[in-house]
Design a protein around this nucleic acid. Structure first.
Lengths: 149, 149
DNA sequence: TATTGTTATACTCTATAACTATA
DNA sequence: TATAGTTATAGAGTATAACAATA
């Protein structure tokens, strides 16, 4: 019996995640921490509140992640220029370099995976997966709205 | 800038996972526990050693998951008929029913998601994603072999 | 009064290492 | 000697609730 499309999608994410965890162990990085660094790279210096929204976790959780990333030299806490309650978290120079390299590897892996598909089918697969993602996003949002009601 | 295919794949898995966690909270179930129930449903009564392999975690971890699932009434520990060191873990009747329902919902979600893609493109997307999964599986296996060397 | 971040506490998943009972 | 499962211990991610400083 062929695995379902959905199972294949989950399998890909699981493989990616485990491999990434292997690659980063030793550098003191974990999935959650890399996720935060990723958000920082795209959003620029941010308050912990906004990082909590971007990462989809509680502010308390961000405190712990930033603590760890500060210790390992990946981020820096600086005073917020206009709000003395808040801090701005930003990447260190070393982390900027790490993230740039990581982004390149990510793009390269994307290309490598796409090469597993026949050239004439690639656009269809890319579009199809994007449509599935958007559809699922809508379904989850609707389910959340129903729960609130 | 369009998100990469790889990012879409990861987004789908993340959405699915978060939604599943929401659905199961309250029933005392979590992702890891459902994963174990899933493995049990497909493999039938199993030793904790084999569950450890199926779930990709350490045997010690299985002890904890089975403890929790026994408390919540989802699984039962029974003596192994021929090896007095081992136990057989099996689903309770209630859990069999739960898993059957879950499997149906899973299949239904798969169909729903596929409906987001134009009918003439569905086969291409299914095949393409399967090819990508298999390719990634190969890449990860090679990376693991290289690490062992 | 509301918001930002932190301290306090707790639960889950995960791992390694040492130990017991059996093979 | 090797295997199945457990106890002991530890670290990481996650959450809620209460609290301080600031807006």
């Amino acid at each position: 019996m062929e695995p379902l499309l959905l199972d294949r999608l989950l399998q890909i994410a699981d493989l990616f995640q485990r491999d990434m965890a292997r690659a980063f162990e030793g550098a003191g990085l974990t999935t959650a921490r890399v996720h935060l660094l990723w958000a920082l790279q795209h959003a620029g210096p941010s308050t912990q509140q906004s990082l909590a929204v971007l990462c989809g976790v509680t502010p308390r959780n961000i405190t712990g992640l930033v603590d760890a990333l500060e210790l390992s030299g990946h981020v820096r806490r600086t005073p917020h220029p206009s709000d003395r309650r808040a801090v701005l978290v930003e990447l260190t120079d070393a982390a900027v370099e790490t993230m740039t390299r990581m982004q390149a590897q990510h793009t390269e892996l994307n290309a490598t995976l796409l090469r597993a598909v026949a050239p004439e089918d690639r656009a269809v697969v890319e579009t199809g997966v994007a449509q599935i993602a958007q559809h699922l996003e809508r379904l989850v949002a609707e389910a959340a709205a129903r729960r609130t009601t």
